[in-house]
Structures are given as structure tokens and as C-alpha cells.
Amino acid sequence: MQLRQLIADEFEANIELLQYAFQLKLDAERLANKRRNFKAEQFWGAFEEGSLKAQLQLIPLQLYVQGRALAMGGIANVSTWPEYRRHGHVTQLLVRVLRHMRENGQSVSCLHPFSVGFYRKFGWELYTDYKKYTIETANFPPRVATEGYVVRVGADIPLLARVYNNYASRYNGTLARDEAWWGKVLKLGSVVVYFRPDGEPAGYILYEIEKRVMTVHEMVHEDERARRALWTFIANHDSMIDKAVLEAPMDDILPFLLPNPRISQEIMPYFMARIVDAPAFVQQYAFGATGERTQISVQLIDPHAPWNEGVWHLTVAEDGRGTLAPGDPDENGSADLACDIGSWTAMLMGYRRPEELYGCGRMDGTEDAVRRLEAILPKCQTYLLDYF
């Protein structure tokens, strides 16, 4: 088996497998567009006798973690011809791209799983959920006269990016979008922006209306005044729609603010993340500045990325700067804490706390070490507005 990046001449093999695996039927126009935008270097394939048997796409992206944009490898379009499934092709591709990401400075990777259990075997772990609301017009928040104004805008990427970046950087796991990514996002619908009385933008919604349902693809607001103004805009569609459907981060308190909070709410497990390079990730991470130096030894279990495997010494300085230095192999089994890379990822992303992992058996060690780890890990809600 040969594992390598695709070349431009292999578009036909790539798109044939994608259409089969994801049951796509692309017309001539969409197929031509796919061909124009084909980035062969993003696709990794498993070949046998020169024939493509399995593939995945590795997209270079950036992810906000503790307010900092980190280089991230986004995995998508994992696909195998059915007669070659369960032959280890995807396993080998995942291991290969882990090494490639590490070599290219991508210390973390994310993906949307077809099966959580499948990707857990390779070190990815859930890192974010979201709430999905379905709200009948009778249960909308009351209209409120708000200072400022709401304006319908076109594809004003610099304007929207200002609002989005302020909002997204407050969460762990949101994308730091570039102009090309914004171009794809804005195809989803129409945009209105809320401006404060001083003319500064402070919120927007991206939405579409079809069959008397308003689907809000993104609702971004920097403060309560912006949220009220945007909901008043939505409520003014009451003669056109019967309900609104929208997604929100897990810390959203909309139901508490409603006159009738008995609305449909679903909790949707969403994306998975994986730390690719443990010491590089820690070096970029903003730990809590406790004013004291903290040292904890940690044994990481990561058989698919052996450079992460073993005992490490986590040191966090008084100002919150962290380092992860390799320990002595003789320390195996005697570290303060021990966990697999998936649990370590869920914890540093902010999805789960050390005490939760320790309590449910996903982290071993001493209670004292768990308490010290709790003290240096800032609490930050995870969220992701995008899909890939």
C-alpha cells in the first residue's frame, strides 16, 4: 500500500469515490466547480497498484483556544470503496496525517465523526455540543425598543469578521475564519447587523426563510442589548413565519429569558478534537495565572502518535505560561496523573474538567494532583459555528 497526497491529474478518482461514499449526484455545473477548486495537496490517498482505495482531506485551519488562534488540521471527506473497508486503509491514513500535521506545526486536529466510537480509537474525543432550539412565534422573546439600529448588509466580510472574531475568541474551539471561508459561510443566507448608537457593530444573524420557517444559521451578539435587538428583528417576521430554528452554545440562557420557556431544546454532540503535538499545544496554551509555580507529572497514553506517549512534566509559571518536558522512562507508572490523549484533549479544550475525568475513571492519579490541575485550568465554554 502507498500513502501519499493526490496530484492534480487524480481529480476523477477523487470525485468518483466522494460521490459514491457520500451518495452525491453532482450536475455538470457543480462538477466543473469542484474541478476548478480541487486542491489535490489537501487529499491523502491509500493506493494499491496505482488505484485509489481510500482517502481523506486535511484542511489547514485555525482554531481559537483560550483566545489564541492555533494552527489546526481539519479532517474531512474520509471515504473508502466498500470492498476495501476494514482493511486498515483509513487507520494508516489517519496515522500518516497525524505525523504530517505535527511536521507542519498543527498541534491540534478536529473532525465531524460519522461514528464517535470509531475516531475515539485513534485519539479524537468530543469537544463541543450545541443546543438546538425550535421556537414557535407565540413563544418568541418580547419585542423591545432598543437603542441602535439593525441594517441588512451584503457580503461585507470585514464588518462581519469584526463582530465574529470578538464573539468567537471568547470560546474554545471556534474557527478563526479567513476571507475564503467567509465566502462559503455567506452562501447560507441573508445577513442583518445590529449597530450600537455610536455606529459600532455588535451583533448579526445569518438566516433564511423557507416554508414559513426561519432558520438562523448564526446568531452572534456581543452583549444583551445586541441580543434583544436581533430577537426583535426576528419577532417582526411573525406574519411570515410559524417558528424559528436556531443553534446556540451550551452556556446560552435563552429559555430562562423567555416568558414561556417550554420550547423544544435538543442537545447535539458535535465535533471531536485531538491534540496532535502535546508539548507544542501546551506551549501555546494560556493557563491560569495563579501567582504560583505549579509542577505535575503526567503519563499520556497515545499509541497512534508515539511522540506523545510516556511521562511528561507539566510546569506552569506564575504568569500562566506552560511547558511540557519529557520525563524519564523509568517514571512510567509513577506519574502524578495518567490519561489517554483523548481525555487530555477534552480537558484542555475545556469540554471536561479534571475532577470530572478523575471521577468517571478517565484519569488516574492522586486527588492532590487533580486539585492542582483544576487550579491552573481556566474555565471556558466550547463552541463551533462551522462545519467541514
Rank of each mutant, 00 (worst) to 15 (best):
Gln2Cys: 02
Gln2Ser: 11
Ile7Met: 10
Glu10Asp: 13
Glu12Val: 03
Glu16Val: 05
Leu17Ala: 06
Ala21Lys: 02
Ala21Ser: 15
Leu24His: 04
Lys25Ala: 15
Leu26Lys: 05
Glu29Leu: 12
Asn37Asp: 15
Asn37Ile: 03
Ala40Lys: 03
Trp44Ala: 12
Gly45Thr: 00
Ala54Met: 03
Gln55Asn: 06
Ser79Pro: 04
Arg85His: 02
Thr91Ser: 12
Arg96Trp: 07
Arg96Cys: 10
His100Cys: 12
Glu103Val: 06
Asn104Arg: 13
Gln106His: 14
Ser109Glu: 07
Leu111Cys: 12
Ser115Ile: 06
Tyr119Ile: 10
Tyr119Lys: 09
Gly123Met: 08
Tyr127Thr: 12
Ile135Thr: 09
Glu136Met: 08
Thr137Met: 05
Thr137Glu: 07
Asn139Asp: 12
Pro142Trp: 00
Leu159His: 09
Leu160Cys: 09
Tyr167Met: 03
Thr174Gln: 06
Lys187Cys: 10
Lys187Ile: 01
Val193Gly: 03
Arg196Trp: 00
Asp198Lys: 00
Asp198Phe: 01
Tyr204Asn: 05
Tyr207His: 11
Glu208Val: 05
Val213Lys: 07
His221Met: 08
Arg228Cys: 12
Ile241His: 09
Leu246Cys: 04
Phe256Pro: 04
Arg262Cys: 13
Glu266Ser: 12
Tyr270Glu: 14
Arg274Gln: 11
Phe281Ala: 01
Gln284Trp: 02
Ala286Glu: 10
Gln295Cys: 14
Val298Gln: 03
Gln299Asn: 10
Gln299Thr: 08
Gln299Ala: 14
Leu300Tyr: 10
Leu300Pro: 11
His304Ile: 07
His304Met: 07
Pro306Met: 02
Trp307Thr: 10
Asn308Asp: 14
Val311Trp: 02
Trp312Gly: 13
Leu314Asp: 14
Leu314Val: 06
Glu318Asn: 04
Leu324His: 07
Leu324Tyr: 05
Asp330Ala: 15
Leu337Tyr: 06
Ile341Phe: 03
Ile341Val: 10
Thr345Gln: 01
Leu348Trp: 10
Tyr358Ser: 13
Gly359Thr: 01
Cys360Ser: 10
Met363Gly: 08
Gly365Trp: 00
Arg372Val: 02
Ala375Val: 05
Ile376Pro: 15
Pro378Phe: 02
